[in-house]
């Protein structure tokens, strides 16, 4: 590594001639680079930007797939309908609650798991694998598993936790808003905590052992080492983990679809969009909802990066 740096540095010392040469080479390399990424960029534009623009265009129409002759330009009226609708705000609130609660719980449990995976000395592979198993399970499958778990007919939650005063054999978890939300969140947390812990593990392994050692020598307690040394040094990793999971959680769909189908007011923003576009074929209204969903996700990403005061380029090691 050091040799490579040295050889690269040597020709740059006689400044003027080499700089011009380097620029030529850099230009050529840049051109080659552009050519190399061009196919990928074009593909991205076709599969990502085009549908996005199309959604934006469709969102200004009243357009239903089964009554195509009825299509009519509406301007921003779809947006005003949505933004003044109670259901939209209720679903957004649900989604935010699910996002905040699941990410917070996952961050704590995920960090504990990351510590275990980081520090464990025996059966390291087995422990790491078993922690990661839920993440390897398809969300729909895990949602069904948790639906059966909480089911009033054949679930084990009601029988195992029957000793709790508020749980009995006739507790219908999917019969009321909050119990149903609880079940959905448990399923989501179980499924994605391993992902969180994996990202945190990466951050944890980057914290220099020397610093921890130095803090130990200075007499810092375990708690102080955690809060003053480990966590501040993991800020970028924590931000990436929270950002990824928050965006994922905000788009929650599968668990709700399988467990309640949106009943008991458990609908999320994605589920509302799905119902407009796929079930009701309301391409106009559905596109408007997708656009709003996209903007919300952007906003969340912006707020999280601001909150953690981390430069993403720096987090990638480019700064």
């Amino acid at each position: 590594m050091s040799t490579a740096t040295a050889t690269a540095a040597t020709p740059s010392s006689p400044r003027t001639p080499t700089k011009a040469a380097a620029t030529d080479r850099a230009k050529a390399e840049n051109r080659l680079g552009l050519k190399l990424v061009a196919p990928a960029v074009i593909l991205m534009l076709v599969v990502t930007a085009w549908p996005m623009l199309r959604a934006l265009y469709l969102s200004t129409f009243r357009y239903r797939l089964t009554t195509p002759d009825d299509r009519e330009f509406q301007g921003i009226s779809n947006y005003t309908t949505i933004l003044t609708d109670r259901l939209f705000w209720q679903d957004t609130l649900n989604t935010v609650i699910i996002m905040v609660v699941t990410v917070a719980v996952e961050l704590v449990i995920g960090f504990a798991f990351a510590m275990v995976m980081h520090r464990i000395v025996f059966a390291r592979g087995a422990v790491r694998t078993s922690i990661l198993i839920p993440y390897g399970i398809i969300t729909v499958v895990s949602a069904f598993a948790w639906q059966f778990t909480f089911s009033i007919n054949n679930g084990w939650v009601n029988s195992w936790f029957g000793w709790l005063p508020w749980i009995g054999p006739n507790t219908n978890w999917f019969g009321d808003h909050w119990p149903a939300m609880f079940a959905i969140m448990v399923s989501e947390i179980w499924k994605t905590t391993p992902f969180m812990s994996l990202l945190l593990l990466a951050g944890l392994s980057q914290v220099s052992e020397d610093m921890i050692e130095a803090a130990k020598v200075d007499g810092a307690t375990w708690w102080q080492r955690l809060w003053k040394v480990i966590l501040p040094n993991m800020r970028a990793a924590i931000m990436v983990a929270v950002l990824f999971r928050a965006l994922d959680a905000f788009r929650i769909f599968d668990n709700i679809y399988v467990m309640t189908k949106g009943a008991q007011g458990t609908e999320s923003s994605s589920f509302l969009t799905y119902r407009q576009v796929i079930e009701q074929f309301q391409l106009g209204m559905g596109s408007a909802l997708s656009v709003l969903l996209f903007l919300t996700v952007l906003l969340i990403a912006y707020l999280i990066t601001k909150f953690f005061r981390v430069d993403l380029a720096q987090a990638r090691g480019e700064g």
Partner: peptide, 14 residues
């Protein structure tokens, strides 16, 4: 039935 709000043809049959 205690599962009234989630009952369908199958669960009603049970």
């Amino acid at each position: 039935p205690s599962d009234l709000s989630v009952s369908n043809e199958g669960t009603a049959g049970s």
